[in-house]
Computed example of a mutant assay.
Amino acid sequence: MVLTSLAEVERAIRAAWSPDTCDPVDLPDWSPANPARGQCGVTALVLRELVGGELLLGPVLRRDGTRQGVHYWNRLDGGIEVDLTREQFSADEIVQEPVVVDPPPGAPARLREQYLLLRGRVHHALGIAETSAS
């Protein structure tokens, strides 16, 4: 299947989010009102697999300067940044400048189950034959 648009991929990814695809660290803050919470790592990896580009990683700081965590998103070929999970953060959580990081070969060691579940749901929604992510 040929993907017709980034919007199609975005709809499939957003529809696939659930507590089961959330980073366990963020699970206490996940809710249907904030379904993007804890989805950034697996979302960025699935999006990169489907549309290419670079994987970005930036620290997230609270307004008082303490570290909240990290945030992943994508930079497509041509320099356009796509961040499908930015809305997960409160006004007190500020994403800092990113660095480009190498994606793991195959499925990530951390969040493997969440990644495989999200990837499978997105592939199914888009009509993509499932291939091994190892």
Rank of each mutant, 00 (worst) to 15 (best):
V46H: 00
P28Q: 01
W17N: 01
T66P: 06
V46A: 00
L116M: 15
W30T: 03
T85H: 10
R112P: 00
L56N: 05
R14C: 15
Q39C: 05
G78H: 04
D102H: 08
E97Y: 09
V70A: 08
S31N: 02
P28V: 10
Y72R: 10
S31A: 03
R67W: 09
C22L: 01
G41A: 12
R37T: 14
R37M: 11
V51Y: 09
V82D: 01
I94N: 02
R75I: 04
C22H: 05
E10L: 06
P98R: 07
R86V: 12
I128G: 01
G127C: 03
R121E: 00
V99S: 14
P19I: 05
V9N: 02
P105I: 05
E54N: 12
I80K: 14
G52N: 02
H71T: 03
R119L: 01
P108F: 03
P98T: 05
T66Q: 11
R75C: 08
Q114I: 02
V51H: 02
R11F: 00
R75N: 07
A133T: 14
N34Y: 13
A12V: 07
L116N: 09
L27V: 05
D26Y: 12
C40Q: 04
A125D: 01
R112S: 15
D23E: 13
R14L: 15
G53R: 11
S5T: 06
R48Q: 15
P35C: 10
L111E: 12
V82C: 02
E130P: 02
P98G: 12
D29P: 12
L3M: 12
D83C: 09
V101C: 07
G78W: 01
E49Y: 14
E54A: 13
A125E: 05
A91T: 11
D20S: 09
H71V: 00
E49H: 15
I80H: 09
G106H: 00
H124N: 13
E54H: 15
L61A: 07
P105A: 14
A129E: 13
P98A: 04
L126I: 06
D29K: 12
T21P: 02
S31C: 01
A33S: 14
N74E: 08
P35Q: 03
W73S: 09
L117M: 14
L3Q: 08
W30G: 02
L6T: 07
Q88G: 14
E97S: 13
R121N: 00
S134F: 11
F89D: 07
D102V: 12
V42P: 00
E130L: 13
W73H: 06
G41C: 05
S90K: 13
H124V: 08
H123V: 10
R62L: 15
L3D: 08
V122Q: 04
Q68L: 12
V95M: 12
A36W: 07
V42N: 02
R110Q: 11
I94F: 08
L3N: 07
N34C: 13
V100S: 03
H124I: 04
M1E: 11
H71S: 00
Q88H: 06
D29M: 11
V9M: 09
V101M: 04
A33G: 12
T131G: 12
T66H: 13
R37K: 15
R110C: 08
